[in-house]
Design a protein around this nucleic acid. Structure first.
Lengths: 97, 97
DNA sequence: AAATAATTTAGACATTCGCTTAATTATCTA
DNA sequence: TAGATAATTAAGCGAATGTCTAAATTATTT
């Protein structure tokens, strides 16, 4: 739990998550997006992985990262615990006839 | 944005938010819940207020705190941006006939 | 007007965080 | 197998964070 909130506390890590919405990418491609040293990005990826917000898969020389649903669900559940108090805007539904 | 994620990063502050789900409370009552000095709690309340996750209202000698919807909605919106990728469990709907 | 109560502000200290450069591990290719 | 490429691990440093005690502020009561 702590690890997840810690992970999303940093703006760079949030940007990494947003970037991965477009699909899986390897560490190098991710690092290219930022004006920051590769070791720093590597460290951020590690924290996101520990938080189970991303998953790593080694593909030969490369390591591919992608979003990990399990971590997001935990945050989502925490967030839902406040819905007693608030009603958040619901997703629009469409009924086809 | 940063202030909100920072605010929910701390476990004490998350507990304060959970505590306030049961309704508004003054600073003293909130502090009673924790084995921590009042000034520390006061500081946590300040960060939550800056993040617009809680609102403070002075009532005579007391200061009453309650959850602030506006801050939660911002976080909710951020979270929704990942729904392209994931489907989170949807609230159940019932269609009456 | 003085005493009491609720809360915040100020100052100090140890810990954690995010960043960098340098060194290391693993894989691919000529 | 040597050299290049991808990525991580290690070591170190300044800044930010969370906590405390003590002092200050604001409001109520007597």
């Amino acid at each position: 739990m702590d690890a997840k909130f810690k992970a999303i506390n940093d703006p760079t890590r949030r940007e990494i998550l947003q970037f991965l919405v477009n699909g899986p990418q390897n560490a190098g491609k991710i690092a290219e997006q930022f004006e920051m040293s590769k070791p720093s990005i590597s460290h951020h990826l590690d924290l996101l992985k520990q938080a189970k917000l991303i998953q790593a898969e080694k593909k030969g020389q490369f390591i591919e990262y992608k979003l990990d649903k399990s971590g997001f669900e935990v945050i989502h559940t925490w967030f839902q615990s406040f819905s007693k108090y608030f009603e958040f805007p619901k997703p629009k539904i469409r009924i086809e006839i």
